[in-house]
């Protein structure tokens, strides 16, 4: 593990929310690292804590009710959790850029797209507004917006969803950050537009050595873009590996279930395999392994019901938090059925 290649290192991050109904451990001991010029994807279902992880890195968690209880977030060796708000504001934008799921609500409707990019640039750089304008138009070209000089003076509502997301990317990249956090960047977009945006992110990464933290629920998006994947379930990373390895041989029963439950192009009508039950309520996580209530292997195993497994390196570079993942293959076949009756 060579440290000079690592840009971001998150260790044992815990972010909790204190609500009326109790403490929600939204992120509970998450660790990962992102190398320069690489893409790390956090995959998981709604409420698994993947977005909270991203917001914790940016320190944009609303406090209260949220609180980063423990852990460390190092960007290029610098501990971000020790910084005060002013220093952190400098990091946001200039070191870490962020794009969101819904490009309409993340752009201010009363300002032109151009002026919003200019503002982002001038927040971190002392340059004249004319230079900033030139830079902004240059950015619009980079993100593939046709007729950039005209688009500069248009308002967000005049642009289509895909164009707005491009503007968001231009803004996020305006100060040449080293890390881009993309929180469900294509979820609100159509497939043809999604393909365009993912392609754009790849091109930008290749040309600027950008590191990307990709947050998504869509395994298919991950397959085409990420180098390393962490699968999150109930506030923890339950499996982590290189993309190729993870897709070739998912070890955690949850990951396995996810793969089997998505319909794929080219597969004919058949029963999909399902993961039974629903995502557990973060106020009321089951004891032991949090997945055991939905797991066809661990449901009745005493160890799974009482002891929580930790991430361990099951194969070289392939980490998994499951007591039974070594014996997984055989167990999967003996699973009787998932018929809904």
């Amino acid at each position: 593990m060579s440290d000079n290649g690592t840009l971001l290192r998150v260790s044992d991050l815990r972010t909790h929310f204190h609500t009326e109904d109790g403490v929600v451990k939204a992120v509970d001991g998450v660790s990962f690292r992102i190398d320069r010029g690489r893409t790390f994807a956090l995959v998981g279902e709604s409420g698994c804590g993947k977005s909270v992880t991203a917001f914790s890195i940016m320190q944009l968690i609303p406090i209260p009710p949220g609180r980063i209880v423990s852990g460390s977030i190092e960007l290029d060796g610098e501990e971000l959790l020790d910084l005060n708000e002013k220093q952190m504001r400098h990091i946001r934008g200039s070191q870490i850029g962020m794009i969101f799921q819904e490009p309409m609500s993340s752009l201010n409707p009363v300002f032109t797209c151009g002026s919003q990019i200019v503002e982002a640039i001038r927040l971190h750089r002392r340059i004249s507004s004319r230079d900033a304008r030139a830079m902004a138009i240059d950015l619009l070209v980079q993100v593939g917006i046709p007729e950039p000089a005209q688009r500069f003076d248009e308002y967000p509502h005049q642009l289509s969803g895909g164009m707005r997301q491009r503007v968001m990317i231009a803004m996020a990249l305006s100060c040449r950050p080293r890390l881009l956090i993309a929180d469900e960047p294509t979820t609100a977009l159509d497939v043809t537009i999604q393909a365009q945006i993912l392609e754009l992110l790849k091109e930008l990464q290749a040309s600027t050595q950008l590191s990307i933290l990709l947050i998504t629920h869509d395994l298919a998006v991950v397959a085409g873009t990420a180098d390393v994947v962490g699968v999150m379930y109930a506030s923890k990373i339950v499996e982590q590996a290189d993309t190729g390895q993870l897709f070739a041989e998912p070890l955690h029963p949850y990951t396995h279930g996810l793969f089997r439950s998505i319909p794929r192009l080219g597969e004919k009508k058949h029963r999909l395999e399902t993961i039974p039950g629903t995502v557990p309520n973060p106020l009321n996580f089951p004891a032991g392994c949090k997945f055991h209530t939905r797991c066809h292997i661990g449901r009745d195993k005493p160890r799974c019901r009482t002891q929580e497994p930790t991430l361990r390196e099951v194969r070289p570079g392939h980490w998994c938090a499951c007591w039974e993942c070594d014996r997984y293959e055989t167990a999967a076949q003996s699973d009787p059925s998932d018929k809904v009756t």
Binding site: M163, T192, Q194, A220, V221, A223, G224, F247, L265
Partner: peptide, 25 residues
């Protein structure tokens, strides 16, 4: 055809010969 080829495939080794459509609806 374009729509079909734009569907991301959950397989990192999948061929990526996509028909990219320019612009939006």
């Amino acid at each position: 055809r374009a729509l079909l080829s734009a569907v991301p495939i959950p397989d990192p080794n999948a061929r990526t010969t996509r028909v990219q459509l320019p612009g939006d609806v």
